[in-house]
Design a protein around this nucleic acid. Structure first.
Lengths: 105, 105
DNA sequence: TATTATTATCGTATATTTACGATAAACAAT
DNA sequence: ATTGTTTATCGTAAATATACGATAATAATA
């Protein structure tokens, strides 16, 4: 896409847009819901609940992990993913702040 | 990107991911902030405040409008954009709901 | 009507995202 | 050691996103 101009914005703006990008696919929204509801959170269980191939789910998990919304813990040959509470709260707070004030022309 | 699988998800999930996608670029985050702070909200003023060409800004505005986060009102040859309070509140509520419950493995 | 000002759209180049099969890597268990 | 299970990564194809210059469209004004 031509040369990116992201550097021209603040790190706060870039971080918030990165979080939003992580939420910008329904499969990743669904994954967050699943992790919220399940006790077990191994990848296989998530794959079973989604209409996507294992490789694709793994990619989505990677993106959620990249921005810190989830974290993965190794458990034998399996990996147990879970929500990253602290970062979710941070994201929620930042989004709230963005949406709180309303002014209009 | 291969054939999209978005149809496999709920309309709520798709809507929320579309809102997130609209927020997934720092320029659009900045635009929302600008609209929140300015009285005047014509496109030219927004372009002046961003390190992007007019055509690019117009494209970003179009995406924000598409998901209903902003609206544009024709004012002579100019167009006055402003935040769409009702939809912003709706988005904020949905994001809050997604982030409110935390469970972990 | 011609000109100016303002904004959207078109065309286009490049980057990124999405999706999947195939394969590799890591570990447990036989 | 070999096998089976689980997950990540590689390679790849197709769709989208980003960015801009050029141009069209709209409306006010001279």
């Amino acid at each position: 896409m031509a040369i990116s101009k992201k550097d021209e914005f603040t790190s706060e703006e870039i971080w918030l847009s990165d979080v939003a990008k992580a939420l910008s696919h329904p499969a990743r929204i669904r994954i967050l819901k699943i992790l919220n509801e399940m006790n077990s959170c191994m990848v296989g269980s998530i794959v079973d609940k989604l209409p996507l191939a294992q490789a694709t789910v793994s990619q989505h998990l990677k993106e959620l992990k990249k921005v810190g919304l989830i974290e993965g813990e190794i458990d034998g040959p399996k990996i147990c993913y879970c929500l990253h509470n602290k970062n979710l709260i941070k994201a929620k707070t930042a989004l709230d702040k963005l949406f709180t004030k309303f002014g209009c022309c």
